[in-house]
Computed example of a mutant assay.
Amino acid sequence: MGWDFKLTNARSYTGAIVATVKNPVVTVEDKQLADYIKKLPYFVPQGGTNPETEEPNEKPAENEGSAEPAEGDSDFTMSGLKALKKPGQEDLIIQLGGDPSTAANEEERIALIQELAKNQEEEA
């Protein structure tokens, strides 16, 4: 089940996700990424599942797909993390309390995100 968000307060956004005026609706498969996007002032939740309650929103999601689980039982899926561009991956690393400059490439950034997410789950 995915979460849909619509770009509202900008002409385009590039970061953890990419949205434009021509393609303002984005679907996110990871709950933590959905929670992050929900905090941004540029997006409003559209159909799919509400990240706060994990219950379906009023409008059903148009693109529902299954995501394969990530290593380390993280809420982030490998495919979801690979779909992010470098700035989005770096944003997540910062949000999770890490330093993106310690990762030299995409594989290291993904491993760092999964490690930081696992550490946060253990602390909770």
Score class of each variant (00 low, 15 high):
Met1Phe: 05
Ile110Glu: 01
Leu116Trp: 02
Lys85Gly: 00
Lys82Leu: 12
Pro45Met: 11
Gln32Tyr: 08
Ile37Trp: 03
Asp75Lys: 06
Ile110Gly: 06
Thr8Pro: 09
Thr77His: 01
Asn57His: 12
Thr14Asp: 14
Ile93Ala: 00
Glu68Val: 09
Gly88Asn: 06
Trp3Asn: 08
Ala16Asn: 14
Ile17Asn: 07
Leu116Asn: 00
Val18Gln: 15
Arg109Pro: 00
Asp35Val: 00
Ala61Asp: 14
Asp99Phe: 03
Asn63Lys: 09
Ile93Trp: 03
Asn57Asp: 13
Tyr42His: 15
Thr77Ala: 07
Ala104Ile: 05
Phe43Pro: 07
Glu121Pro: 00
Glu121Leu: 03
Asp75Phe: 01
Pro56Met: 10
Met1Thr: 03
Ala16His: 14
Thr14Lys: 15
Asp73Pro: 07
Asn105Gly: 12
Thr53Asn: 11
Lys22Tyr: 12
Ile113Gly: 00
Asp73Leu: 12
Trp3Leu: 04
Ala19Trp: 14
Ile37Met: 03
Leu84Val: 04
Ile110Pro: 02
Gly48Asp: 09
Phe76Leu: 03
Thr27Glu: 14
Ala104Cys: 09
Thr49Gly: 04
Pro41Lys: 03
Ala83Asn: 11
Ser12Lys: 07
Ile93Cys: 02
Lys85Val: 01
Ser101Asn: 08
Ala124Lys: 08
Glu52Ser: 09
Thr20Arg: 07
Thr102Gly: 03
Ala103Phe: 02
Asp73Gln: 11
Gly72Pro: 02
Thr14Ser: 15
Gly97Glu: 11
Ser101Val: 05
Glu123Arg: 07
Gly80Thr: 04
Glu115Lys: 15
Asn105Trp: 13
Ala83Leu: 05
Asn105Ala: 13
Arg109Ile: 00
Pro69Val: 04
Tyr13Lys: 10
Gly88Met: 14
Tyr13Asp: 15
Asp35Lys: 01
Asp30Glu: 03
Asn50Ser: 04
Ser101Glu: 11
Tyr42Cys: 12
Ala124Val: 00
Gly65Pro: 00
Val26Arg: 15
Ser74Met: 05
Thr27Gly: 13
Pro60Ala: 01
Val21Leu: 15
